[in-house]
């Protein structure tokens, strides 16, 4: 799913790729940018610069500037001083790009993973007035008997839920 290019084998690019892949999301630090599906490619251009492409998650997400700075800092620490970080808008990021490892790590940290994103076709987009509440399993005890308490949680990209079985509240990453 992640378009981390592997066409040319250049040991230093491989190293830069490893470093970039280890950078974590500032809001959900249990996830790397690879887990989140944000890191699109790491290459070297003809001028010898390391070019990193990332995809913004949500428009206006305040974490983007931090991700960019963290990538530059991690690469500089590893000796890559000439680095360019590009934001790639197409195709738009989807929570479907969160890897299986990422989903597992979310659950291990008490955050329910998103379901499959709604596919939007060309033409007018249908209104959804009825809540198709998916069955959300409690990431803490695994019970399916949970309820959503707010459509917005700790961050705008998460909703807030509560488990009726173990009584614990938890966040869930919303599918988009």
């Amino acid at each position: 799913m992640n378009a981390v290019t592997t066409a040319v084998i250049d040991p230093s690019v491989e190293r830069a790729r490893e470093v970039a892949a280890s950078v974590t999301d500032p809001e959900m630090p249990m996830l790397t940018l690879v887990d989140l599906g944000v890191l699109r490619s790491v290459d070297r251009d003809t001028d010898g610069r390391v070019v990193v492409a990332i995809t913004p998650t949500y428009s206006g997400c305040p974490a983007m500037a931090t991700m960019r700075a963290d990538l530059e800092c991690a690469l500089a620490t590893a000796g890559f001083t000439d680095v360019v970080v590009h934001a790639v808008l197409t195709p738009p990021w989807s929570t479907d790009w969160i890897t299986d490892a990422g989903r597992r790590k979310l659950a291990e940290h008490g955050i329910a993973a998103p379901g499959t994103a709604r596919v939007l076709k060309d033409g007018p987009i249908a209104l959804t007035l009825t809540v198709h509440a998916p069955v959300v399993h409690c990431p803490l005890c695994g019970a399916a008997d949970t309820e959503r308490t707010s459509e917005f949680g700790a961050t705008a990209c998460k909703s807030l839920h509560r488990c009726r079985s173990c009584g614990e509240p938890f966040d869930r990453v919303k599918e988009i």
Binding site: L89, P92, A117, L129, K174, I176
Partner: peptide, 27 residues
């Protein structure tokens, strides 16, 4: 304009959510 088209494709996913949210609250 490719940039506008890309921003719009991204925005459509997000605003669909906000419109549904507002509509459900109004009801």
């Amino acid at each position: 304009d490719n940039v506008l088209a890309a921003v719009a494709a991204k925005g459509v996913k997000e605003i669909t959510y906000h419109r549904d949210y507002a509509a459900r609250w109004l009801v």
